[in-house]
């Protein structure tokens, strides 16, 4: 755990100016995408995502987290997600078209990367040994928020990778005592349910086997199971240890 926070401190102190630049570009592009969703803005957002995921893969994991064991695994995992964004930019799969269905949850998720450092500060941590908005879990929660805001056609393969990362986040809270990651896990469970429902169960009255409404219930059960797991983990972490 010491290595974990040390590498974060090393990363923050060395890249904080660049992180601010990345955050500002992200805010500007998100605002443009919401207010003036022109084709060049959509493409710029995809390039931003490629850069952001590449940054996490190479700068964060490969360079600054070198001290951690198996940092290469994480670098590769994020590298694959960056490649998925490259594929998306080439094929134009994600259309970034607003649905206005899940606006409230989307805005909460988009704000979440800024809540991360606040939680760290509330826990008594201080810069540079604290979470920042340009770290893996913050990027995941930002991406889920962004995709949910433009959920007309999303790349489900990427969503499944993000889902996997959220599950890891859940495990990380238990193994590494990082309560900040509860934000990710708790915020993404409803998000992921909505993605799956939107993609697979658009028409609950369709003639499928079993009927779509039963599959929807199965999906809800899986999400509730995850939520119970999350609550149990949180409870175990909060209970004072002897």
């Amino acid at each position: 755990m010491e290595i974990f926070w040390r590498t974060i401190a090393y990363y923050n102190s060395a890249t904080w100016i660049l992180q601010i630049v990345i955050i500002l570009i992200g805010i500007a592009l998100t605002a443009l995408l919401i207010s003036k969703p022109r084709p060049w803005v959509k493409m710029a957002m995809k390039f931003y995502m490629i850069g952001l995921y590449g940054w996490i893969s190479i700068i964060y994991y490969y360079i600054y987290c070198e001290e951690r064991s198996y940092n290469g695994v994480m670098a590769m995992f994020w590298g694959v997600m960056a490649i998925i964004w490259i594929w998306d930019a080439i094929t134009g799969y994600t259309t970034f078209e607003r649905t206005h269905k899940y606006d409230i949850l989307s805005y909460i998720l988009l704000a979440m990367p800024f809540i991360y450092p606040l939680v760290s500060l509330a826990r008594g941590l201080s810069f540079p040994e604290m979470t920042s908005p340009v770290m893996p879990c913050s990027v995941v929660v930002f991406t889920i928020g962004l995709l949910l805001l433009f959920a007309h056609k999303v790349n489900m393969f990427l969503v499944l990778f993000l889902c996997h990362w959220s599950l890891i986040g859940l495990s990380k809270t238990y193994f590494f005592q990082i309560p900040e990651d509860f934000l990710l896990a708790s915020a993404t469970i409803p998000g992921l349910y909505l993605f799956f429902r939107e993609y697979f169960l658009n028409n609950l009255h369709a003639d499928t086997k079993p009927k779509a409404k039963y599959i929807n219930w199965l999906l809800i059960t899986v999400c509730v199971g995850l939520a119970i797991l999350l609550t149990t983990t949180m409870f175990l972490e909060l209970v004072p240890k002897n």
Partner: peptide, 10 residues
Amino acid sequence: LCASTALIFD
């Protein structure tokens, strides 16, 4: 590759 992320945990 996704399963290999288990390597970071005990």
